[in-house]
Design a protein around this nucleic acid. Structure first.
Lengths: 124, 124
DNA sequence: TATAGCGATATGATTTGTCAAGTATTTGAA
DNA sequence: TTCAAATACTTGACAAATCATATCGCTATA
């Protein structure tokens, strides 16, 4: 099975016009990264490991329930790793795994695009 | 004002610890791209201009209300352009602008990352 | 001794996204 | 000729995601 940039999530097999439910990496990757706060969390952790509240402050504006859910999901995907240093007083740190670090290229591409094409909001 | 990859949306000025509401391109770019379906829409349009239903089918799974809202927003951001060929019968086409085309680098980075780090879901 | 900080979790309100159905007209097939 | 399908959306009801805020037991600092 081939994949191209224009390959759809559900590939249509020409002969039969049936839907192919095979796995498409780009589509899945987009689904992972498009969840609210995910890219912000990753960008923040590129700066180095952080505790829960520290991460929360650095990300800016994400409420704790959502943040907890996001980092849990990212942990399952092996993008973020969680280390518990002590339970009482609670002390934890979140860091990027190798897969997480690899997302730096994505963040950089977004960064370049934003600088070039997003207009500074003008007063109106 | 400087921007770096680790720059937060609201920069804290060290001397005063006050919040700086200055515009941060990366943060804004992430906010644009993290809305549900946005990256899928852009990836689909990289394949060439499409009509509304054609786009809908190619994106796969996005409902028309959301799709209409997304393309309208992308039009405002000058990422997508809309051309009405005829009103009755209705015929329209959506295409990427220069800024939209430039997002190909982002999609490609996501593509590479997905192929390398997203595991094919195993049967369980 | 009082206060702030830690890593969360609970609550109920609000925002966002989804679903099914419908519009007015033309095109292609039976 | 007659009927189903396609075009680009819109509407209103509903479900799901995210929101601000309060809270927990405990420790380190003030």
């Amino acid at each position: 099975m081939w994949y191209t940039l224009i390959t759809m999530a559900r590939l249509v097999v020409p002969e039969t016009s049936q839907i192919d439910h095979s796995f498409c990496p780009v589509y899945e990757a987009i689904n992972v990264l498009q969840e609210k706060w995910t890219l912000h969390i990753i960008r923040t952790l590129l700066d180095g490991p952080k505790g829960f509240n520290e991460l929360s402050r650095a990300v800016g504006g994400c409420n704790p329930a959502t943040l907890a859910q996001r980092v849990e999901k990212l942990e399952h995907l092996d993008i973020v790793s969680k280390t518990i240093h002590s339970t009482m007083p609670p002390r934890t740190s979140y860091a990027l795994t190798e897969a997480g670090q690899a997302l730096q290229t994505v963040i950089e591409a977004i960064d370049r695009w934003g600088r070039q094409y997003l207009p500074e909001p003008a007063a109106h």
